[in-house]
Design a binder for these strands. Structure first.
Length: 195
DNA sequence: CAGCAGATTGACT
DNA sequence: GTCAATCTGCTGC
């Protein structure tokens, strides 16, 4: 059966609620013949033109962030510090630049592919926004990809954590965003690795 | 056009 | 705890 989240999930206006609901969802990529997937355990919401922490604050629109203005269900991938690829889920309708940054996943499928992509280290780390993108093979070439497609999608496997297991807190690395930096737009959940 | 800081990570002191 | 790696966009000369 098709577990992919429907377009309607991404088109909603409540980006903070979507960030919370993405916890427990399964991020799947099928790049270069490698099927890899991980359970989303940490997200951050970026709430459009009024959010000082967002690349789209004040309606800013550049070659890099253009995909934030695409319709919900589109991937927004950009390079941070010139090194790390960060993966975001675009939400809301076209021209409303809402997005959710996926900050951490628990690997469930294709661990050997992930290890290979991450290099020679023995332990497989996917607990940061840059490392999870690398493990899943996500690169800037995937910017603008449709999350309803075959190569990349988010599925509902019924793993949503109970409310009590979700921790909301301030976002990371956005101190410059002043009052917006303190908004509880970051969500974390401890999810057991399936046996 | 030079300089700087940023939604980061991992190696090293 | 500190620092380098190195791309993008903004500021200021």
């Amino acid at each position: 059966m098709d577990r992919r989240l429907p377009r309607s999930f991404y088109l909603r206006t409540d980006v903070v609620g979507i960030a919370r609901e993405l916890l427990g969802m399964v991020l799947v990529t099928r790049f270069d013949g490698a099927h890899t997937a991980g359970i989303i355990t940490e997200t951050e919401a970026y709430a459009g033109v009024g959010d000082r922490a967002s690349h789209a604050f004040g309606g800013r629109r550049t070659a890099r962030n253009a995909m934030m203005y695409a319709q919900g269900g589109t991937a927004y991938v950009y390079l941070c510090y010139g090194i790390h690829h960060l993966f975001n889920v675009v939400t809301n309708v076209r021209d409303v630049p809402h997005a959710v940054l996926v900050r951490a996943v628990v690997p469930v499928t294709g661990l050997e592919h992930m290890r290979k992509r991450r290099g020679t280290t023995s332990t497989l780390t996917t607990g940061g926004p840059g490392t999870l993108a690398q493990a899943l093979g996500i690169r800037t070439a995937h910017n603008g990809m449709d999350l309803r497609g075959a190569e990349m999608c988010i599925e509902d496997h019924g793993l949503a954590p109970p409310d009590a297991a979700i921790i909301a807190g301030p976002r990371v690395g956005v101190e410059y965003a002043e009052v917006d930096a303190r908004l509880p737009y970051r969500f974390r959940a401890h999810i057991r690795t399936p046996a």
